[in-house]
Design a protein around this nucleic acid. Structure first.
Ligand SMILES: [Zn+2]
Ligand SMILES: [Zn+2]
Ligand SMILES: [Zn+2]
Ligand SMILES: [Zn+2]
Lengths: 130, 130
DNA sequence: ATTTAAATTGTTATAATATAACACCATGTA
DNA sequence: TACATGGTGTTATATTATAACAATTTAAAT
């Protein structure tokens, strides 16, 4: 389904960090964490992040300026993403619902336009915080 | 349906500017525009923006860090918003579709959780750019 | 093998976006 | 009056992100 990309050194270091983080990571927190591995400048982080987003290995949570690893193989190509965000503990989960993605992919606006790319962020309280 | 708020001077100046702008405005572009009216500091702008977002008079386009006036009376309370964004000309339109908002308000995640707040951004090409 | 193009890296500097902290003022209300 | 709430003005600072340039690596294309 989705093309494999061989990650470069910086990309791999940063992906591994995000992938094993239990919560979304912000760019400068990533920078701080990888400085011991020789990545010293913001640009090195942002370049890796851009590439990882582009190839679908991570997603950016726009409302939080944070990044999480993708665990949903079906969204790697489409850039059609949905998340739930807890407004108390900031727990963020990627939603992979076939019916949701089908509904959104087929949604037509008032001009009859359909969209293959979208980003949806739901806000509420997670199980633990309710 | 939605409560009226009396805007303060700064809020009114900034709302009027955004409301009559044909495109979303960014905070520092707003700041530049209102300096002749005595609003000199970023914080004055951000405070007005925060309040205007809170009461639903404007929305923030998260992926663009920009603000547009709301022209959809039904979303002022709910903070349940949807936009279409043209990836070429950056034209942004608020979508007010009863079926979409109904679908999203009734969507249940895998834990059976429903969300009253959400933000959806569709990306594609507008009529003119196709 | 040699050349070429594309992608990635390293680096310094700077731009763009957003908030902290504090003093003061206006308005409503107990 | 006294008090609470919210808005304002101001300076300083934090956070997020990109520009510009040179060097290096990688992967074809000849
Ligand atoms: Zn994903
Ligand atoms: Zn929570
Ligand atoms: Zn609206
Ligand atoms: Zn367009």
């Amino acid at each position: 389904m989705h093309k494999e990309h061989t990650l470069t050194k910086n990309q791999q270091i940063i992906f591994d960090l995000i992938d094993k983080s239990p919560e979304p990571m912000k760019a400068y927190s990533i920078l701080f964490s990888v400085q011991k591995k020789g990545i010293k400048a913001p640009l090195q982080v942002y370049r890796a992040l851009d590439k990882l987003v582009e190839i679908g290995k991570i997603h950016k949570i726009e409302s939080r300026n944070a990044f999480i690893a993708c665990h949903n193989s079906s969204c790697q190509v489409s850039k059609a993403t949905a998340f739930s965000i807890c407004e108390i503990c900031e727990k963020i989960t990627e939603i992979s619902s076939a019916s949701l993605s089908k509904y959104l992919a087929n949604f037509k606006d008032k001009d009859g336009m359909k969209y293959s790319k979208y980003n949806l962020e739901f806000f509420g309280l997670c199980k633990k915080c309710r």
